[in-house]
Design a protein around this nucleic acid. Structure first.
Length: 643
RNA sequence: GCCGAGAUAGCUCAGGGGUAGAGCGCGUCCUUGGUAAGGACGAGGUCAUGGGUUCAAUUCCCAUUCUUGGCUCCA
């Protein structure tokens, strides 16, 4: 049979050759590391015989699918250890996740505590050292049911009910057998380090009416070193937690009295936010956006027209009623309906399109109480929203312009690793969405084409679209390699219909514009949270709430320090003078802890020469400069950063 | 919303049936200093809120609120 390798070369192998054997024929090193094989479009066990012409890609730890296989096999290893330690436990599901894996377990009446995890880790490592093979076998539904009935595992029986006979496989390693589609790594010996991270409750099949199982999360690696690095990364993430830094750097706070999920921005956080706004306002002005302002509430009819009332009315904050007329108003959950009405404020000609209306609009959404989290999930937040109303023939071009704007933002803020997620509708479940097939297809095509023309790295997700249209979301990777969803661009053919938006074409006929929703930051709150964690609170100079600290050596130089500060302040450089009765070492330490980018130390020498001694955060003494030179350098740096 | 954990000084946290402690911060004084913590003294708490058990509750029990780890959800 003919096997096509990823480099396009074709090799001849006898029927029944396995991925592992193919790896061996290429190199011993590859064979040692191969975890699974992508055969055609399916991931297979490396040990599964291949019987026909196909393409193959050998998967190792460096491939996402290789890792997923590794972790999925680790979940089985966890189950094997659990079964050995706690005979009679029952198993739900045990998949791999983005980082690691989990297994849902029913311990029956036994109490399970987190302190038992270490014991399980040891057992897993012991079993891993046995290098037990993961062996696959096909089984009839009847035999499979019989197996789990004898074992008394009702969860697996329930899973089996939904499976088709003839398509059922078991995997076995050591003493443990599981219902599993696979694939798996060749043997447990690949798993060299194990960490069980935490235990949480999870309902069987995610339904709160079902029994709650114990979910054990874990992660494994083929090398001990990688586990150590991973645990260090988790520690670092804890240190960078925006909730912790937000408090320490006095950026924002929450108040029980104000209400959960409603952030209060402190002066320094507000400074940061306003800088971000200012930056985007400027970029948008250049890109032809018109700023608008709309109120925080809107009449119920507005949302009946938009379709949001029908979709979210019952699940959102309840309406505010006028005392006399009993009219109902909703806190605005998005800005688009208001913007549609601005579009409608006058008749539009094709000549003035695209109309781009931008607003930093604060919106309110009822989020379930259990879902609130710092600034990343709140009930009131400000979107850097804009709506572009354009002709159908302008969609792609406008879309491309928005992509450029988003990339400009990412670039200025140091997010250089991103992918674009294209979210299309679920073709199996069309009734979830409003609007006709044709409009959807046109919108989806425009997005796909724009993304490919900009050369974006993309992934496509079916069923992730908004209910009114497909979208493109930007996922950035932060300094710790964690993924965050930030900017979003959405094409919408539905709202213009619902609001009966029109423009007069060159043919003197009425036409319907297309709407593009877009928000490069997404929400200021979420963006600031991600930014804090990305830069660990060490903001880019142009954003830093306190850019400089003027530190007099002693009280004698307080006047000079104030004078220096005023001189810099007049040139839009922000900061403070530390006139406390403390030694210079102390003032430096405090400014370092506050993450102030530049410390300007002034004493006798500096006063005499009209200079400042410059110390950079995290780097130390930079020598001295005249105040004017420092200001000029500083401003030049800021300008470079803002592009 | 559901399950688990938590709430003690401005912050981080210890404690425990007999009305409370540390470090940091804050204030006053001494000190006037050269690149990551000078010293002394002092002020600060209805121990989240409401009930219950008890001679006595901050401590034990229940409820509520908020925070937190998950689950579900996310225009």
């Amino acid at each position: 049979m003919k096997i096509t390798l990823p480099d396009g070369s074709v090799r001849e192998y006898p029927k029944g050759t396995t991925g592992f054997q193919i790896a061996q024929s290429i190199s011993e090193g590859l064979a040692r590391n191969v975890l699974a094989a992508k055969v055609g479009n399916e991931v297979w066990d490396a040990t599964r015989p291949i019987n026909q012409d196909t393409s193959i890609q050998l998967l190792t730890w460096n491939d996402t699918e290789g890792k997923a296989t590794f972790w999925h096999s680790s979940a089985h290893l966890l189950a094997e250890a659990l079964e050995a330690l706690y005979p009679g436990v029952k198993f739900g599901i045990g998949p791999s996740i983005e980082s690691g894996f989990y297994y849902d377990v029913d311990f029956g009446d036994r109490e399970f505590g987190a302190e038992e995890l270490e014991k399980i880790e040891q057992k897993m490592l012991e079993l891993a050292r046995q290098k037990n093979e993961y062996s696959r076998r096909e089984i009839s539904k009847k035999d499979a049911l019989q197996y789990f009935e004898e074992k008394g595992d009702e969860y697996k029986i329930e899973l089996l009910q939904d499976l088709e006979d003839g398509n059922i496989t078991f995997y076995e390693q050591g003493a443990f057998t599981d219902l599993c589609r696979g694939p798996h790594i060749p043997h447990t010996g690949f798993i060299k380090s194990v960490k069980l991270l935490n235990v949480a409750g999870a309902y069987w099949r995610g339904n709160e009416k079902n029994k709650q199982l114990t979910r054990i999360y874990g992660i494994t690696f083929p090398k001990q070193k990688e586990l150590t690095e991973y645990l260090e990364m988790l520690e670092e993430a804890k240190k960078r937690d925006h909730r912790k830094l937000g408090k320490e750097l006095e950026l924002f706070t929450f108040s029980e009295k104000v209400g959960m999920g409603l952030p209060l921005w402190l002066p320094k956080g507000t400074m940061l936010r306003e800088r971000l706004e200012q930056f985007l306002r400027k970029a948008q002005a250049k890109a032809g956006y018109d700023p608008v302002v709309t109120p925080h509430i809107g009449h119920k009819n507005l949302y009946i027209t938009s379709g949001h009332y029908e979709k979210y009315g019952a699940d959102s904050f309840q309406p505010i009623k006028t005392p006399n007329e009993g009219e109902e108003f909703f806190l605005k959950p998005m800005n688009c309906p208001h913007h549609c009405e601005i579009y409608k404020a006058k008749p539009r000609s094709y000549k003035e399109l695209p109309v781009r209306l931008a607003e930093f609009g604060t919106v309110y959404r009822y989020e379930q109480s259990g879902e609130l989290h710092g600034l990343t999930r709140v009930r009131g937040f400000t979107q850097d929203d804009a709506h572009i109303f354009c002709r159908p023939d302008q969609v792609k071009e406008e879309f491309i312009k928005v992509i450029d704007l988003v990339l400009h933002v990412f670039n200025a803020l140091g997010f250089d690793d991103y992918t674009a997620q294209i979210s299309l509708r679920d073709p199996e479940n069309k009734q979830k969405y409003i609007g006709g097939d044709e409009a959807w297809e046109r919108a989806e095509t425009a997005i796909i084409e724009a993304a490919s023309e900009k050369g974006l790295r993309t992934v496509t997700e079916l069923g992730e679209a908004a209910f009114y249209g497909p979208k493109l979301d930007f996922m950035v990777k932060d300094a710790l390699g964690r993924k965050w969803q930030l900017g979003t661009i959405q094409v919408d053919y539905q709202l213009p219909n619902r609001f009966e938006l029109e423009y007069t074409g060159s043919d003197n006929q009425k036409h319907r514009p297309v709407m593009i929703h877009r928000a490069p930051f997404g929400s200021l709150e979420r963006f600031v949270a991600v930014l804090i964690e990305h830069c660990a609170g060490n903001f880019p100079l142009w954003l830093s709430p306190e850019q400089i600290a003027v530190l007099p050596i002693s009280e004698k130089y307080a006047d000079y320090a104030n004078q220096v500060y005023q001189q810099l302040q007049q040139q839009d450089i922000r900061g403070f003078v530390d006139n406390r009765d403390e030694k210079i070492g102390r003032k430096i330490r405090d400014a370092e802890v506050r993450k102030v980018p530049y410390m300007l130390i002034v004493g006798e020498k500096e006063q005499e020469e009209g200079k400042v001694s410059v110390r950079k955060h995290g780097e130390g003494d930079q020598g001295s400069l005249s105040v004017t030179d420092f200001a000029a350098d500083f401003k030049q740096k800021v300008e470079e950063m803002m592009g």
